[in-house]
Write a protein that binds this DNA or RNA. Sequence first.
DNA 1: CTAAACCCTTGACCATGGTCAAGAGTCAAG
DNA 2: CTTGACTCTTGACCATGGTCAAGGGTTTAG
Lengths: 141, 141
Amino acid sequence: MDIQNPRHITIGAVARQAGVGIDTIRYYEREGLLPEPVRRASGYRDYGAGIVERLRFIRRAKDLGFTLQEIRELLALSTDRERGVKSVKQRAEARLGEVEQRIRELQRVKRGLKQLIDACPGHGALEHCPILRALGGEDKV
Amino acid sequence: MDIQNPRHITIGAVARQAGVGIDTIRYYEREGLLPEPVRRASGYRDYGAGIVERLRFIRRAKDLGFTLQEIRELLALSTDRERGVKSVKQRAEARLGEVEQRIRELQRVKRGLKQLIDACPGHGALEHCPILRALGGEDKV
DNA sequence: CTAAACCCTTGACCATGGTCAAGAGTCAAG
DNA sequence: CTTGACTCTTGACCATGGTCAAGGGTTTAG
């Protein structure tokens, strides 16, 4: 009965369509990122059509560096018609700030490494290696 | 008998001087980042003076983004007088490449977020929020 | 001598984002 | 009806870098 109706889609089909593992879907459900779907008499999860879009949302947000915790909040906001758009924009701005901070940290690390590499002749006695010296001096233990 | 001789320094003193936890020192020992120290008759670890420098080495390398695995390798190289300097420089260069790659990824993320934020009015219907739309479209599940 | 402060080992636990296995029930095709 | 593919739950396990607790022995100051 109506097997290809998108109103009757099993977890395996969802997993295939969204390109994630079955266990991942159940994990997201446990973690509150996906609503608990209705169940068939057998106990099988029975998903509506929107589930694949929601998984796609999660994947894209993950690619933008949001944690599952942050994504859970975004999803909650996206169904809150009172506070919605403003808060979503604020979250995105906060996330942007974190990304910029992380970029600055990495650029500092990069400069540190570059200095060491440029100063290192690449041969000779270990005692004169600026990398090892900068990291902590002699290796007497 | 000679209590302040640096040849008789307990794990607690090492931890204080290096600014790490006692458990961290034992953890590093288990993980092969620190040599197994000699033991007193009581079984107490008995460290030489170099241990604090070595812990400092580890901390600085960690700040530069090396994993403990990489640090273990650096430490091994720093005592290998044959292959030493050249390999150390190569490790640092590899690490630099990783850092640069990560910076590029984050800059891509940053651009994506910026576009969304700039396009978002910050008010109005959720249906028109470009952030939510970009992340995955409607929220029908 | 006693008590506080220290040390020992073994093994569990934290967060993160899942993955996998066991054992049992369900569904669809032939 | 049977077989194979699918699903269910519970709970263990992966890496990373530690942290903490239990239950015991040691050392040192007063």
